[in-house]
Write a protein that binds this DNA or RNA. Structure first.
Length: 227
DNA sequence: CGTGTTTGACCAGCGC
DNA sequence: GCGCTGGTCAAACACG
């Protein structure tokens, strides 16, 4: 079930996606994905959307402990590579995705009809909720790539660059070029491992990805569904 | 000429 | 209040 995954995985590795708790990145397994545009976009859209699908009360606050809780749960109940493979194979089957279960307040992996319960309780998470001021939902993921700005299907305009403390690589700031869309993203290289690109998204797109021409296969419908 | 990037200046939040 | 830091602005510039 995972053979197709491992065989097609290339240099681009999408590591876990979580809000902004980068310190926890080492706790999650790697999610290998294809380096071509479509695959990246799908993997990206799904993982991002999954978190965006959290109840608003959680999504806007993104307490660190929520990420931690989720990471640990994932570790316990689904093996690293297995989780990654299942998740990514959804690119083809279109039946695999993380989902927030409104009825049961749980995070799940739905897969072709069956469902793997991750056991993250919303009630538990609500307790964790902190009093930080409300802001746009954020998530970040780590990618092993030579390219700084990965093509995620949206058009971005760079509006700033900053050298952050204790890093030798500058952080770049991008804004979605679409009118009325206030989504931003930050791109920087990991200080400890410059081969890794940290991409942080903030906010939600109010439109579909802007494909240039090759709007083929399931990419657009997937993106629309999740994003 | 339109669009996107670069980059120094500016601003706001935070800790001391 | 002051200094540090991250984030944003906007004028200048580059490019097709």
């Amino acid at each position: 079930m995972h053979e197709e995954m491992s065989s097609t995985a290339s240099q681009t590795m999408l590591n876990q996606s979580l809000f902004e708790d980068q310190d926890l990145s080492s706790q999650l397994g790697f999610f290998p994905i294809h380096s071509n545009f479509t695959s990246f976009q799908l993997g990206c859209s799904q993982s991002l959307k999954n978190f965006a699908m959290l109840p608003p009360s959680l999504a806007v606050d993104a307490p660190v402990t929520l990420s931690e809780s989720f990471a640990l749960k994932q570790k316990e109940e689904i093996p690293y590579q297995s989780a990654g493979s299942q998740f990514l194979s959804s690119q083809r089957s279109t039946a695999n995705y993380w989902a927030w279960d409104e009825m049961n307040d749980t995070m799940s992996i739905k897969r072709s009809g069956e469902e793997n319960y991750l056991g993250v309780s919303a009630m538990k998470m609500k307790k964790i909720k902190t009093r930080r001021k409300v802001r746009e939902p954020r998530f970040c993921f780590k990618t092993l790539s030579d390219i700084d700005v990965l093509d995620d299907g949206y058009k971005w305009r760079k509006y700033g660059q900053k050298v952050v403390k204790n890093t030798q690589h500058p952080r770049s700031y991008y804004r979605c070029t679409q009118d009325n869309c206030r989504v931003k993203k930050r791109v920087e290289r990991l200080a400890e491992d410059p081969r890794m690109v940290i991409t942080t998204y903030e906010g939600r797109h109010v439109h579909s990805p802007s494909h240039d021409e090759d709007d083929s296969q399931a990419s657009s419908q997937f993106s629309n569904f999740f994003w």
